[in-house]
Write a protein that binds this DNA or RNA. Sequence first.
DNA 1: CTAGGATCCTGTCAGC
DNA 2: TGCTGACAGGATCCTA
Length: 305
Amino acid sequence: MPELPEVETVRRGLKPFILNKKIIQVLPEPGKGFYGTTTEVDGAKVIDIRRKGKALLIDLDNGNTLMIHLRMTGQLIWRGKNAKLGQVDDAEQFAAGHPSKNFTSELPNKQTRVTFVFAEGKLFFNDQRKFGFVKVLPTAEVELDKFISELGKEPWEMTPEELYTKCQRHGRSPIKAVLLNQKLIAGLGNIYADESLFYASVHPATPAGVLTEKQVAKILEGACTTMNAAIDSGGSTMATYVRPDGTTGDYLEKFAQVFRREGQKCNRCGAIIEKTRCAGRGTHYCPHCQVVSASKMAARATESA
DNA sequence: CTAGGATCCTGTCAGC
DNA sequence: TGCTGACAGGATCCTA
């Protein structure tokens, strides 16, 4: 799950709990995604929490930074020392990232990769698959990290012209593949790529090179709009995972127009949303609203002939 | 250089 | 019930 809005939600949500607090001890599970030594972390105070694309950066007062990437199934869960299990208590608990029952179950568990012990509580880094990681870096060298240094601009930092140029350069790639490439544009994952393309009424398989500047601008607008909406609604957190009646759900229900809505009606035109495979990923779209541009142009040519 | 596919890992779900 | 294969909210590595 964790795309830019979820990582931003983690950043904002963790701040009140760990900013200016001391990590008494870090407890990594051996071989499970902690790169560094515990002595680089133990006893250090958190002085800032930043985000670059989908990477979370926790700056420490000893000159080191914890770079955390949640990848597909990572989660960060704060349990205050007075937290009561199963109780949604914003003052004592915070959970965000890949939504799962870990949000409300006892921790650490089998999926816990790293535990950060504070006097005020514990921060758990959980990951169902082992794709996520925590890496200790000198703060001064964060920008040199390969992932960070090659990261593209975030949608709101980018002009439509810039994205259009990238689309031209990768003209034969489906537009969805361009949107998923963090080196070209940072922060979009499978959900927001699909949602942005729905917003712009562009078919995910459209070769990036055939898109007009206007279409690219609309896609960029869609990325900004859908991700901002997700950040505003809290992304995937415990609050959006646990419904008021105590059952669990998915924050996607609140705003997704196409993602995981295959077989349901398009909110715009009523057609049935379809799911296919594009750029190696499950891809959702409305077959009526989102038509491949190339075929659109061909149809127009036929009409005028 | 770009484009496409395999791959890392564990869990879940659909279909026998 | 148990087995099997597909596939998953990400990114990298390898090949052509």
